[in-house]
Design a protein around this nucleic acid. Structure first.
Length: 757
DNA sequence: GTAACTTCAATGGC
DNA sequence: CGCCATTGAAGTTA
């Protein structure tokens, strides 16, 4: 994986090569950066073994060679544009550029919402108040607030009374500061954020109760479960000063909450709209970012970032309205006499499907309510804002949507950067009423967004259309989908030879002390069935959501086994069914070969197993040299525990058992001679994958399968990485293997990079 | 196909 | 005018 590439070790490799022809295409190559390969060791994670899977044999698939591609091997996700400020307009118009005129204004905090939680929720409140805020560059302003900049900051729950210091008036910026509140935290009731009613305000108590009663009566059958956050835990979140990290944390927290709420609700047979529950819980607790509306890029959100729910874009400040497709800044807050559009979401209804991804024809809003009479669209609200933006040549963020390839009923939203309105006219909708149309053009010079999707969709349909393919399928059909080997850089022929297998191979028998789990559930295991013995093993819940995503990281995950009575469609069988994504192994440059996916990946999705030969740590000797193709469990990233944070916020008390109980396992897996795509996963200090021990085919818990899952939503063509390193390498290994502690320089590029691993 | 749900800007009362 | 409670608009999700 990382740096030292295969190529480095020539000697050994040659031997391998000789033995197997297969796809030996890849002879060795010069070492990339001069590392001494021999010393590289990875040390890391846990490991273990599992049942075996036959090694696949190698019949090679015909390698196809593509033509040279432009080089930019990796679409870096650097933050494009200036992360902080809106870009200068392009051609004419600069003078009108709203941005220039009033830069600050864009950063104004939005008006608060009256009923912020503060008043009532004794429980809900505090949280955010303590967060430091992330800063970003706009500080420039002369704003007195200097200290903490701005907008980027989290919005906190505010309190209404304290008016005097009300930020609004005096210094707009300040609003975004977290302000701890004390007083009224205690309100009379035990408010739970997501009760059926809307946010209560004290004065409305009577009405609220009334509403609640009504709604309870109406909902006898589908109970709405109230949940609240554990404040103490919430404190620890969002501490980063880096907008990218803050956004990441908010997104991770949201989905963790959402998955856990769904899991809890399903157990009580009341699951519904967990996205809204998680979202409003965060909003009401001030756990959101970039709440001040701004024109231009949103700090921490990059072009190409994907979202699976509308409310996610609201939480990170990309697009505030919960439903409306056009977000705009009101005249008052913009300090102007007109409202201006700041972002739109194209849901796909009118998408012109030319391959021209720089143009978007967008339909205005309104006139199409299902509950009221249809009518002509009016030039007001979003429609008016877009018209004003056209006149001012003001930039607008555009979010496009695509069908989720793994879920027919859902959509994925892709942030595609800045556009400006070039033209507008009225048109006649199918229902006969008139609608506004706006032609938007993408600002040139931005990194790829939706255009990446067009390419990957084509490649998925036919991998040969991918340029610079070295081999169409290095798995030789061992995987359900081809694993493409590509290099957008000349001179790379491929990694040295290895045998592609999809699982682990054991060198000695596993302990049979513990019987295989076997539930008696008929058909499929159900979340509400408290008798399911498999659910009991997994801390009392089915570990996956209905769509197969991992809910929480747990010490050991037990999937249903061959002795369970449930069928293959049971939701508790996920990793045992193998890889489901279209991967490509590509040349990264500094980090050697890496892995990325042509599919968009939702947080919690199963990625792949760490396949290889299981070596018992205690049996390792000098001959078993640790190298970059070795997996062990010594290093655990703290990000893994943070991945569970949202879920833990819902618990009555914080039991850190999940993460604390993780013990190092004796298993060590070597993927040097045999392995799968996982052997090419690189290290990153800011990883997007985590590994989870999983058992389904044997009872030896010291040697579980090591399964990788996505920690966040991962756009197509983004490198997949996990955090591993030598820090914390087991003493046993250190003693036996020289050089194991030698750190390798890290090129992950994340802001919190440790520099080496 | 329907039901249930959200946030925010605008409005209107005091 | 300022404050704030209420209303209406917008569409997504399962």
């Amino acid at each position: 994986m990382e740096n030292s590439q295969d190529e480095s070790e020539s000697d050994e490799q040659e031997q391998f090569l000789e033995m197997k022809p297969l796809w030996s295409l890849a002879p060795m190559f010069p070492l990339p950066m001069g590392y001494d390969v021999a010393t590289q060791s990875t040390d890391p994670m846990l490991v273990f073994v599992t049942p075996f899977r036959p090694c696949t044999s190698p019949e090679q698939s015909p390698a196809s060679f593509g033509q040279p591609l432009p080089k930019s091997p990796i679409p870096l996700k650097a933050t494009p544009i200036s992360a902080a400020f809106p870009m200068p307009r392009h051609k004419g118009g600069s003078s009108h550029d709203p941005l220039k005129d009033t830069p600050m204004s864009v950063a104004f905090p939005m008006p608060r919402h009256k009923d912020e939680p503060s008043d009532d929720p004794p429980k809900a409140t505090p949280i955010s108040a303590a967060f430091p805020m992330p800063r970003h560059k706009d500080e420039s302003s002369d704003d007195p607030l200097k200290a903490t900049p701005v907008s980027a900051a989290f919005c906190m729950p505010r309190h209404k009374d304290k008016s005097s210091d009300d930020p609004l008036k005096a210094t707009p910026m300040s609003r975004s500061f977290p302000i701890p509140r004390h007083e009224d935290e205690s309100s009379d009731e035990d408010y739970k954020p997501f009760s059926g009613q809307k946010k209560p305000t004290p004065l409305k108590t009577a009405k609220r109760i009334q509403q609640a009663e009504c709604s309870n009566a109406a909902n006898t059958k589908r109970r709405s479960i109230q949940r609240s956050l554990n404040k103490e835990l919430a404190f620890s979140s969002f501490l980063s000063s880096d907008p990218n990290e803050s956004v990441e944390e908010a997104m991770i927290m949201f989905d963790s909450l959402r998955r856990r709420i769904l899991q809890l609700d399903e157990k009580e047979d009341a699951g519904k709209r967990a996205d809204l529950k998680a979202g409003s819980l965060m909003m009401q607790n001030g756990l959101r970012i970039n709440s001040s509306k701004i024109i231009g890029p949103v700090p921490g959100v990059e072009i190409g970032d994907i979202f699976f729910f509308r409310i996610e874009m609201c939480i990170v400040g990309l697009h505030a309205p919960a439903m409306a497709g056009i977000d705009y800044i009101s005249a008052k807050h913009a300090g102007k006499d007109e409202i201006l559009a700041i972002s739109i979401i194209s849901s796909g209804g009118y998408e012109n499907d030319d391959n021209d991804t720089d143009i978007l024809v967008y339909t205005g809003q309104g006139g199409n309510s299902r509950h009221k009479d249809k009518h002509d669209q009016k030039l007001e609200r979003g429609n008016l804002a877009l018209m004003n933006s056209m006149k001012k040549k003001s930039l607008i963020r555009v979010v496009r949507s695509a069908q989720d390839p793994f879920c027919n009923s859902s959509k994925i939203y892709i942030y595609d950067g800045l556009y400006w309105v070039e033209d507008s006219w009225t048109d006649r909708a199918k229902n006969g009423f008139s609608v506004f149309k706006y032609k938007l053009r993408r600002e040139p010079g931005q990194q790829d967004g939706i255009s990446v999707w067009k390419k990957t969709e084509k490649w998925k349909a036919n991998p040969v259309t991918r340029n610079n393919v070295i081999r169409v399928d290095i798995s030789s059909k061992a995987e359900k989908l081809p694993v493409c080997l590509v290099s957008d850089v000349d001179d790379q022929k491929g990694p040295s030879y290895f045998n592609y297998i999809t699982g682990v191979e054991y060198s000695r028998p596993l302990s049979k002390t513990k019987p295989l789990q076997s539930c008696k559930c008929p058909s499929v295991c159900l979340p509400s069935d408290t008798n399911c013995s498999c659910a009991q093993l997994n801390c009392g819940y089915l570990p996956y959501s209905a769509n197969g995503v991992l809910v929480k990281h747990i010490p050991m995950l037990y999937e249903c086994s061959s002795t369970c009575q449930c069928c293959q469609n049971c939701r508790n069988r996920v990793t045992q069914k193998g890889v489901n994504l279209s991967f490509e192994v590509f040349w990264t440059g500094d980090c050697g070969w890496g892995v990325r996916s042509w599919d968009p990946i939702r947080a919690g999705t199963f990625i792949c197993e760490y396949a290889g030969q299981v070596i018992d740590e205690t049996n390792m000797n000098m001959g078993d040299e640790e190298d970059e193709y070795t997996f062990c469990t010594s290093w655990r990233s703290d990000k893994v525990s943070r991945w569970n944070l949202g879920a833990e916020l819902l618990e009555e008390k914080s039991d850190n058992t999940t993460t604390e109980n993780l013990k190092r396992l004796p298993i060590v897996i070597s993927a040097k001679r045999s392995g799968n795509v996982a052997r090419f996963l690189n290290h990153s200090c800011s990883p997007n994958l985590l590994w989870q021990p999983v058992q389904y085919d044997h009872g030896d818990d010291s040697y579980p399968h090591i399964m990788f899952f996505a920690m966040k939503h991962i756009p197509p063509m983004t490198e997949l990485t996990y955090d591993y390193g030598t820090i914390g390498a087991p003493p046993g290994i250190n003693g036996k293997i020289p050089n194991v502690c030698k750190l390798k320089p890290c090129f992950c590029g994340s802001t919190n990079c440790r520099g080496s691993f």
